[in-house]
Amino acid sequence: MNNLGTFLATKGLTFLQFGLIAVLLLLGPIVAHRSYLLLILQVSGMVLGIIAIFAVGLNQFSAYPTPRNGSKLITAGPFKIIRNPMYLAVFLFTVPITLDGPSMIKAVGMVALAIVILAKISVEERLLEKQFSEYEIYKKRSWRLIPFIY
């Protein structure tokens, strides 16, 4: 991927991700209230996201899939099991929003968000493979997104 392609993929996908999350939030409700299970999933997503951010470190954290110069490969905390816990956290937070007050527009938004996040994961993993020689070994001992499934 050339520099323009990388720029568009990283910035464009991130813009789409946050735009789709905003649409889901604006369609409400923001907090799942019809089911305790959905609320537990949302809270789990928030907790996982916070833990993952602190595992990465605030100085190394970025919403973009491009690794920062001088960054280190994080394989501890939730990253020991899942290579992309922050994206899983997004799903754990947004899927309950979609299911709590289902509508066709929310379903389309959630499917679009899933496609964007999966594309973003692919871009990010390619960039991490280029930056970290040990990434291939890490991939073999961790799950991409959902433990025991994917």
Rank of each mutant, 00 (worst) to 15 (best):
I82T: 01
G77I: 03
V47K: 06
I40K: 00
M1Q: 10
D100E: 09
I105Q: 08
G77N: 02
S71P: 01
I81P: 04
P85T: 09
L58V: 13
Q17W: 12
Y138W: 10
L13K: 05
P78W: 03
A119R: 08
M1H: 13
R34V: 00
N69C: 04
S103E: 08
L88N: 06
P78S: 05
K106I: 07
V47F: 12
K72E: 11
P102E: 04
F93P: 00
V108E: 01
F7R: 15
I115V: 14
V123H: 03
M104A: 12
P29I: 07
A107S: 12
P102G: 03
A119N: 12
G19R: 11
F148E: 07
L145I: 07
L27W: 09
R126S: 14
M1W: 13
G45S: 04
G49K: 06
V43D: 01
I74N: 03
P96E: 05
I50E: 10
L37E: 02
L39A: 11
L127D: 08
Y150P: 08
M46R: 08
I137G: 10
I74A: 05
G49A: 06
A55H: 06
I137H: 14
N3A: 15
A22Y: 11
L38F: 11
I115R: 03
E125H: 07
L38S: 01
P96R: 00
A52H: 06
K11Y: 15
L25K: 00
G19V: 10
F79D: 04
G49P: 00
F7V: 09
S35C: 02
F91V: 02
Q42L: 02
G45I: 10
R126N: 15
P65K: 11
K80G: 12
R68I: 10
M1E: 11
I117A: 04
N69I: 11
I121R: 05
L99K: 01
L25I: 14
L39N: 00
A76G: 11
L27F: 08
F93W: 12
N2A: 06
R141I: 12
L39F: 13
V56D: 06
L20P: 01
L88W: 03
L127S: 09
F148P: 00
N69G: 09
F61R: 08
F61P: 07
Y64H: 14
F148S: 08
N2L: 08
A89P: 01
I50P: 01
M110N: 09
I105W: 12
A32T: 05
S133I: 13
